[in-house]
């Protein structure tokens, strides 16, 4: 599903260039359930944004489903984000003026589905995350857990194979967080490939594999030590 070799990502801020990723090799197979952990600023989000084609690496090779991502046009990248990838963010990132229904509908609009198809799909998705009765609510009229469930429904809109979640429980209380994690578990069982960034080792432990990052590199050091560090940060 994902083949990354020697991936680098440099950010340019004014005259200063900062390399957030400095040569990362990662291979993820279909239907894997992966956690990415690491201290703040280690490049987790940067890595995930590359995986989701929100940005292009400045070095290395990245194949997504055998396609070389660096060679794709902005429109092709947009289509990949629309159909192959579903993002879930810590800050939910819902459109504030749109209802739950409209938020979930948007990726379907971009995919060019008919009104009837969209209606059926949005209803199905919101029911699946347990928000069948809140379709007309705007984000301001929902709790954090509910907003994140809308975001998951939106991420699932076009049945993407790959779900990327950047600290999805970071803004939620323990109970709501747990409910969100349950949804991810179900999605994994349904065959989705799932990558979660988290500071919560309880969540990370439930994954099949943990990828550790440190200063823009894969951290292959002492697992126990890393675990403690991460727990402290969280």
């Amino acid at each position: 599903m994902i083949e990354m070799t020697g991936i680098r990502k440099a950010y340019q801020t004014g005259k200063i260039t900062f390399e957030a990723l400095r040569g990362v090799d990662i291979s993820i197979k279909e239907n894997e359930y992966i956690a990415i952990v690491g201290p703040s600023g280690s490049g987790k989000s940067t890595l995930m944004n590359l995986m989701g084609c929100l940005d292009k690496p400045t070095g290395g090779e990245f194949y997504l489903d055998t396609e070389r991502v660096e060679t794709l046009s902005p429109n092709q990248l947009a289509d990949i984000r629309n159909r192959k990838v579903g993002f879930v963010f810590q800050a939910f990132n819902l459109l504030p003026y749109a209802t739950a229904y409209e938020n979930v509908e948007l990726p379907l609009l971009y995919a060019g589905l008919s009104g009837k198809e969209r209606k059926a799909r949005v209803t199905e998705l919101l029911n699946r995350v347990g928000l069948g009765d809140k379709m007309a609510n705007k984000p301001t009229e929902m709790s954090g857990g509910e907003m994140q469930r809308v975001a998951i429904a939106r991420a699932l809109a076009n049945k993407p194979k790959l779900i990327l979640a950047d600290e999805p429980t970071g803004n939620l209380d323990t109970k709501s967080g747990r409910a969100i994690v349950e949804i991810f578990n179900d999605l994994w069982k349904d065959g989705h490939t799932i990558v979660i960034i988290t500071h919560d080792m309880h969540i990370a432990k439930r994954c099949q594999r943990i990828i550790r990052l440190k200063d823009g590199l894969l951290d292959t050091g002492n697992e126990e030590e890393e675990q403690e560090q991460s727990l402290k940060v969280a």
């Binding site: 902005p74 947009a78 289509d79 984000r81 159909r83 459109l95 948007l106 991420a155 809109a157």
Partner: peptide
């Protein structure tokens, strides 16, 4: 800007 970012993340082409 953030709204534009969200839309792009869920697959909006530039033309939209």
């Amino acid at each position: 800007t953030r709204e534009i970012g969200i839309k792009m993340a869920i697959g909006a082409r530039r033309i939209y």
